[in-house]
Design a protein around this nucleic acid. Structure first.
Lengths: 211, 211
DNA sequence: GTCTATACGAAGATAGAC
DNA sequence: GTCTATCTTCGTATAGAC
C-alpha cells in the first residue's frame, strides 16, 4: 500500500511525515494522516518521537543534514578550484543544492526541497528557531565566502541579502514562485532555477544601500 | 477586554481574524480563538461568513482591497510625473505600499502586511488561487509598467522577477527575513525595507537569463 | 435580521494496558 | 514496540431569544 516498503517504522514515519508536511504544511497535517501513510499505528509517533513537534523536529534535522552536507561539499569544491569564488559561483552552489540532492536521493530530493521551502515560512516561532539553528553550520561558511567576494558591503547588508536568498530559494522550491492564478501543479522548472541564479547574483552585486 | 471596542460583530470578527491569521497562520487558528478575541459567539462566524474558509476569504478580500488601492494610487502618481517610470521607482512604489498603509490605517497596517505575507506562503491550493485572483488587478498594471521599463526582457522573465518581488516582500512583511536564530521579535526594520528596494531593483535590472 | 446557547460528530494528541 | 481507550478541541448545525 505504501511506496516505502519495509524500512523500520521509525523511518517510514519520517518519510511519510516529510512528504505530507511538504505538501500541506505543519499545522494542516494530522498525525493520523501520517501514521496511515506510514502503515503504522496512531500512537507510534508518540513512542518514537514523543509528540507531533518531536516528529517534525526529527524530519527537519534529517533533511537539513542532507542539504548542509551537500552545500558544504560544493563550497569546498569551489574553494579548491579558486581561493576566492565569485558571487555567481557561490549563489549557484547554494541554489543548485536542491537539484543535486534530487540526483543523489532520487524522488525524495524534490520532497526535501519542498519541505524545507515550506518550513521556512512556518509562522510558529519554535519552528523558526529550530530552522535557524539547523541552517547555522552552512550559513557561517557561506556568509564568510560571500563577504570575501563583496568586501565593500557591510556584514549587515551581506546577511540581509543572504537571508533573502534563503527565503527566495525556499519559495522557489515550495512552488510559491510558480504562477499564482492558473491551474494547480507548481513544480519548479529548470528555467526558473536559472532565472533565480541570475536574479540573486545581481541582487548580491547591487551597490550598497544608501543611508 | 478587546482592543476593538464597539464596531459591528462582523467587523470585530474580521479584525480579530486578520490579526490571528497573521500571527499563527490559517490552519493553526481556530474559530473559537477568533470569536473569543472578537467578543462574539462561536456561531457568529457561521452566521456572517458561512464557514471558516468564508471568513478567511473575507479577510483576504478586505486586506487586498486596501493594498491594491494604495498600489494603484502610487503607480498613477508615478505615471503622472513621468510617462515611463524607472524600475527603481516602480519597485519602491510596490514595496512601500505596506508602510503607506501603516500611516493611513495606523497599527492595523502592520497587521495587514504581516497577514498578506503569511497568506502568500499558505500551502492550501484554494487559498493560493484566492490570493492570486486578488493580486490580479494591480499585478497587470505593474507588469505592464515594468515591461515598458525593461523592453529587452521576455515577458516570462519579467513575470518571474515580479513574482520574486511579491514573494520577497511577503517574507519581509511577515518577518521571515528577520534574523533566523536570535531572540524572537521580528518586526521588519526601516533599514531592511531600503535594503529590499536596493536588492529588488538590481534584480530587475539584471541581464536576461541565458539559455 | 442578529446573535446566543448548546449539541454533534469527526478528528486531534497522548497515556496506559498489553 | 503496538493497540485500545480517553479526553480534548475542532468546525459546523440547530433552535430560539432579542
Amino acid at each position: 500500500m505504501n511506496d516505502t516498503h519495509r524500512a523500520s517504522t521509525r523511518d517510514r514515519l519520517l518519510d511519510a511525515a516529510e512528504r505530507l508536511f511538504a505538501e500541506h504544511g505543519y499545522a494542516a497535517t494530522s498525525l493520523r494522516t501520517v501514521t496511515v501513510a506510514a502503515g503504522a499505528n496512531v500512537a507510534a509517533v508518540n513512542y518514537h518521537f514523543g509528540s507531533k513537534e518531536g516528529l517534525f523536529r526529527a524530519v527537519v534535522e534529517r533533511a537539513m543534514a542532507a542539504v548542509n552536507t551537500e552545500r558544504l561539499r560544493l563550497l569546498a569544491e569551489l574553494r579548491a578550484a579558486r581561493s576566492v569564488p565569485s558571487v555567481e559561483e557561490l549563489v549557484r552552489a547554494f541554489v543548485v543544492t536542491g537539484a543535486r540532492i534530487v540526483e543523489h536521493s532520487g524522488e525524495r530530493g524534490m520532497t526535501i526541497a519542498r519541505f524545507l521551502g515550506q518550513v521556512m515560512s512556518e509562522p510558529d516561532p519554535a519552528i523558526r528557531r529550530l530552522f535557524g539553528a539547523q541552517v547555522g553550520p552552512a550559513e557561517g561558511q557561506y556568509l564568510d565566502a560571500l563577504q570575501s567576494a563583496l568586501p565593500h558591503l557591510s556584514p549587515k547588508e551581506v546577511a540581509f541579502r543572504y537571508r533573502a536568498m534563503v527565503g527566495l530559494l525556499g519559495l522557489h522550491q515550495s512552488g510559491s514562485l510558480g504562477d499564482l492564478h492558473p491551474g494547480r501543479p507548481v513544480t519548479p522548472t529548470e528555467g526558473d532555477t536559472e532565472r533565480l541564479v541570475t536574479l540573486l547574483t545581481a541582487a548580491f552585486l547591487a551597490p550598497r544601500t544608501p543611508g
